[in-house]
């Protein structure tokens, strides 16, 4: 892939991070940490990998993206707005009374939201349902699902993992946002999910482990996943919670706290300084 496109995507991810900071600061609440950690993955999907038409959000052949970790709603909204699903100005209405940008994604209110989430552990099952429907309808769309590493403590995730393999849903590609933190602390201390890659292998999935902030690796992993036949694919993406804002990185307290105005300014200045720089 040409260097120019990669640099463009990296810059788009930076813009999306900027939106995440502005939105949560304006709302005075929300979840910046897990939104920032998955920003590169979601940017690669919405701006390069997925088949989409923002003018036709219900186009039957579109690829689907499911934000199973629904608290990262600011990230999804920023990507949808930047991609043209709704005006970018609307982003600042996040979490306000009457806004289409609900605290957690609501498929009834906002075009581009494929399924309502917020209660963790339920997105992969919905993704399987869409993938089965694609098969029944003879459509070739792909379903992408983003899971959190704390989220996969939910038993239902593993029921869905089993079902995807059982029904050979090779049109399902899941990402694990492997940032190592949940609300009460490090995942290994709260309730270990290790060995995580091996678990998905044991459940019958094709598994790759990548750096979730490396645009080239993200894109290549999806290209590889597309070639897999007869098995769903899991891309375990090592990430940093709060990525891109130094004082938020790897800090558990930024899971569900919005930046105050002066913190937002510092964060935005840092992100602005990253323009034109390679993110790694």
């Amino acid at each position: 892939m040409e260097q120019e496109k990669i640099a463009w995507l990296q810059n788009k991810a930076r813009e999306i991070r900027t939106h995440i900071i502005r939105m949560t600061a304006a709302a005075g609440s929300g979840h910046p940490g897990g939104s920032l950690s998955a920003a590169d993955i979601v940017t690669a999907l919405y701006f390069h990998l997925m088949r989409l038409d923002p003018q036709r959000p219900s186009w039957p052949d579109r690829d689907r993206f499911i934000l199973s970790k629904g608290h990262a709603a600011p990230l999804l909204y920023a990507a949808l707005a930047e991609r043209g699903f709704f005006p970018v100005e609307e982003l600042l209405t996040l979490r306000k009374l009457g806004s289409r940008l609900q605290g957690h994604p609501d498929m009834k209110s906002l075009p581009g939201v494929e399924i309502s989430t917020g209660s963790l552990g339920q997105g992969l099952s919905a993704g399987n349902g869409m993938a089965l429907a694609a098969r029944l309808d003879g459509r070739d769309y792909r379903v992408f699902v983003l899971l959190g590493d704390g989220e996969i403590q939910e038993g239902m995730v593993w029921e869905a993992a089993m079902a995807a393999a059982h029904y050979r849903l090779d049109n399902v590609t899941a990402f694990l946002d492997y940032n190592g933190l949940q609300i009460d602390g490090p995942v290994t201390e709260v309730m270990s999910v290790e060995p995580v890659a091996e678990k998905w292998v044991a459940f019958g999935w094709d598994v790759q482990v990548i750096d979730g902030h490396d645009m080239v690796q993200i894109i290549q992993a999806v290209e590889v996943a597309r070639q897999v036949r007869g098995r769903p694919q899991m891309i375990v993406a090592r990430t940093v919670k709060g990525k891109g804002v130094s004082f938020m990185e790897n800090q558990v307290n930024w899971h569900g706290a919005a930046p105050r105005p002066e913190e937002a300014e510092r964060a935005l200045a840092e992100l602005a300084a990253q323009a034109g720089l390679a993110p790694n």
């Binding site: 963790l120 552990g121 704390g150 989220e151 403590q153 939910e154 038993g155 949940q182 609300i183 009460d184 995942v187 709260v190 309730m191």
Partner: peptide, 25 residues
Amino acid sequence: DLAKSTKTIDFGKHFPHRFFDMGVA
């Protein structure tokens, strides 16, 4: 995984051996 919000964290600090965080489950 909501001990800070439900406030069970206080009990966890005082009696760590009688406090069980089950994760998101």
